[in-house]
Design a protein around this nucleic acid. Structure first.
Lengths: 105, 105
DNA sequence: CGATTCGGTTAGCCATGGCTTACGGTAAGC
DNA sequence: GCTTACCGTAAGCCATGGCTAACCGAATCG
């Protein structure tokens, strides 16, 4: 479960991969379509999509010789849950600290 | 604004740095305290904290010769907002796709 | 079937970045 | 003031990983 977060964050850390991810998010499409307009070659995009897929961030659907990629909510959901843990735990603590700082000036 | 997401994701991508981040989240503390128990040296932790700080994920407060680190909600908030964009936009689209797949079986 | 299109895989190159060791600098304690 | 504790920084080493070029498999169309 922690590993899920690890691979997702690692996948989204790369700028090119994040661009690809956002592009798929804007509109599902085939590899060639996604690669068009990007400053990297098509095999590079293919490799990135593989990483994103293994991270549970995208899903692929065969369509003839093409292969359509779309977002996969599972990875997003895992990340969101992970982030929310910190919100509950530490935002309150930070607020206490901020108030304390303020009152001592 | 997009750069904010970039540095935050990049900072959280490294396993050691994520461990440090979670540790700070569990309990604010000094560098030495955080480094204790970790499989890396103290300077390494210091370098990681610098990255986390520049990513807006932690804040440091001088305390004598020590330096206390705590979570910074700004980075978390930026990440959360970024993730929420995808939820609104694409979860619906994915659901439509899933329903469509189901109806064609 | 041949030809074409589309896409995943491999090998290899090179840059990025995480780690350690050594150092310098500052604040507390005696 | 001198020592000690705590921490950030610099230099250098080495592994990870992203990229391209070349290859190969599969599906569609004439």
């Amino acid at each position: 479960m922690a590993n899920r977060i690890a691979v997702a964050l690692n996948a989204l850390a790369d700028p090119t991969r994040r661009t690809i991810f956002e592009r798929v998010g804007a509109a599902p499409g085939a590899v060639g379509e996604i690669a068009a307009g990007l400053p990297v070659s098509r095999p590079a995009v293919s490799q990135h999509l593989k990483v994103l897929k293994e991270a549970g961030l995208v899903t692929d659907t065969p369509d003839g010789t093409r292969r359509v990629y779309r977002l996969d909510p599972r990875g997003l959901g895992a990340l969101r849950d992970w982030l929310d843990r910190f919100w509950g735990d530490q935002l309150g603590a930070f607020k206490d600290f901020a108030d304390q700082q303020e009152s001592s000036e």
